[in-house]
Design a protein around this nucleic acid. Structure first.
Lengths: 225, 225
DNA sequence: GCATGTGAATGGATTCACAGCT
DNA sequence: AGCTGTGAATCCATTCACATGC
């Protein structure tokens, strides 16, 4: 119960919405770049101009982490970055499995962005005997889907990435949840249901393309001004 | 100018928001499945229950296409599907290029969901001489990035998928826009700016993982009830 | 003087609840 | 009786604008 007495507790990480979380991730990336360029201090206006963001929104978002800014000056890059890393839970490494070792699964296993600190891809799981026992280019092993639950437990896996065809997605989803997974990133074009205590995020490539198609169809005409 | 006289024009496709568009794409997928199962008629409630959606929202979304439902009955699957295909601009085929023939680009080129009717991936472009001249498993050719503008024009390309490292993303973005592309799907973890008359959609894998990480860090404690 | 942090205002999107049609 | 289509109500997110503090 006892909160440190002087501690500012604006940083009640509960209240932070999903959209805000996504932007925090963006800010972290921006700050990482700025830090690598030797920038020590940055204002919300500078960030906004540089990265096509809105300065008021940046301030509101960052205010969630506590009073980190210095009025009249801005934010210290290093300090802010540290807080973002902590808020997003990236100081520790989370283990990930990818289910489905097809084109997409394998590409994800080798994707640079996934091998950042904070995440570790420990295995791909697949049912095709031809693939089992092999490794992706970056060395991620392919294991039999039969051993799904065992791998999750023994390797302390927290996140599952579903990269199987739509037909199998629901079954896999149920299995990983039963095995205790609370974070799921789904690439299959399937409608998986929300569950209490589980975060499901969908990356649906078809929706993305169809949204572009809709735009292309409708600009020419009506979208004049 | 002359509108067909009797034509219901609730279907003013302008007013449709991006979020609604995304859901229309979901509905289309659901209907395609239902149709394949021989279902002829479906109500908003049935759709909602089956696919974890909200029935009022389904009705609001679909009302954008005109008065397609039959009160007391529901929607005719075939009719509704046809309207969705048309609204999303999927009766015609749009040509796509993928820039970057690395792991991700190649996986996308071979991804089944992209070879649906409505879309055709005509080429991947890359700067690595080793890759140029080869083909993906499904036969998409890799062409020199130097020929980017030429390919866009000659093949009548409408959509560009950016699958290059973050450092190169901005330069590629400018180039495809200059070449006349109005629809861009960006996989690079870079902040590209909005442009008038251009639809940019970002698929950011890192943001997705970090959002899961944030959730995992914060449930256990506060997210009790 | 200058940039943050934040209440107030605005703008969207979702949900409710029911009138109206079949 | 049942389901759509939709105004009204609600909820959430963004933007504005300024008091506050360096």
């Amino acid at each position: 119960m006892s909160e440190r007495p002087g501690a500012r507790r604006s940083g009640s990480t509960e209240s932070i919405s999903e959209l805000t979380t996504e932007r925090l991730s963006v800010y972290l990336r921006c700050l990482t770049w700025l830090e690598s360029q030797g920038v020590r201090t940055v204002s919300s206006h500078q960030l906004a101009r540089r990265y096509h963001l809105n300065s008021a929104q940046i301030r509101k978002d960052l205010a969630n982490l506590g009073e980190l800014g210095i009025r009249g000056v801005g934010y210290q890059v290093e300090v802010l970055k540290k807080h973002l890393v902590e808020t997003l839970g990236l100081e520790q490494t989370r283990n990930i499995i990818i289910i489905g070792a097809g084109n997409l699964g394998t590409a994800l296993a080798d994707y640079r962005g996934f091998h950042q600190p904070g995440f570790s891809i420990v295995a791909m799981l697949d049912k095709d005997p031809e693939r089992i026992g092999s490794r992706s280019r970056s060395g991620v092993p392919v294991i039999s889907i039969e051993r799904l639950e065992e791998v999750i437990q023994s390797q302390n896996v927290e996140i599952a990435i579903i990269a199987v065809p739509a037909e199998s997605a629901l079954e896999i989803y149920e299995r990983v949840l039963d095995a205790g997974i609370r974070g799921v990133l789904n690439f299959a074009p399937a409608q998986l249901g929300r569950r209490e205590g589980v975060k499901l995020r969908n990356v649906d490539l078809r929706i993305n393309l169809e949204a572009l198609s809709f735009f292309l169809k409708n600009e020419g005409l009506g979208a004049r001004d």
